[in-house]
Design a protein around this nucleic acid. Structure first.
Lengths: 111, 111
DNA sequence: TGAGCATATGAGTATATAGGAATATACTAA
DNA sequence: TTAGTATATTCCTATATACTCATATGCTCA
């Protein structure tokens, strides 16, 4: 861990859309277009936020034919792991994030 | 806790100077001019960062004649308390913050 | 009251970055 | 190869904000 990385990570928390992405990915892997539907943001916007999160190392991606699945990584550094957990936990009670998770579940069951 | 407040708090973490302030205040109360000397930033700059931190509720201040002492507040909300602790802990191992604390101690002993 | 110190605020500038629209790339299947 | 779908990237604009310098405010003491 160096200052550069910590700064990058903390900055990545300073945006609602990225927080919503992290909160969603905490419930499982998702493709870009699934996140588009849940978060009601356009694809270009989400791709850019995902790229930024990927650069911090907080999320990873894997391609499966046309789709790219994003997932939360499991930070090796204990303090970073704790930090990420604290951030996600501090969001979980807030209305907008609960709504996102609700739409996520709808999407998962209805296909 | 509402989304507005959480956003404000997470944004306040997205700046090195504010992180250094939080890290210092974790060791005890300080005046603006003390922080100027430790952080080697001008007074106007620090005052503005302190104002911003004060608006988030993470720090408080009290005036004692000419000096204004700033201090970390103790968040009531458990998840916020944990978040603040996680952030400060994730900084403590980094060189720049260790140097700040070192200068803090020098200042405290030498007066 | 006026001088002087600590702090806060305002004006102006530079930079970062979020956002959308359009386009490019990656992949699949016919 | 061509069409079609999912994702990434580029270009542009608008806004937020960090920074410095100058000035204002708050307080103390002579």
């Amino acid at each position: 861990m160096n200052i550069r990385r910590v700064r990058q990570i903390l900055k990545s928390f300073a945006d609602d859309t990225r927080l919503r992405i992290l909160s969603l990915l905490d419930h499982g892997d998702l493709t870009v277009s699934q996140m588009c539907r849940i978060l009601r943001k356009n694809q270009s916007n989400l791709s850019k936020h995902l790229m930024r999160l990927r650069l911090t190392g907080l999320v990873g991606d894997r391609r499966e034919s046309l789709n790219v699945y994003y997932h939360l990584t499991n930070p090796k550094d204990p303090s970073l792991k704790k930090l990420l957990r604290s951030v996600i936990d501090s969001l979980s009670g807030l209305e907008i994030f609960k709504q996102d998770v609700c739409r996520l579940k709808t999407l998962k069951t209805k296909g």
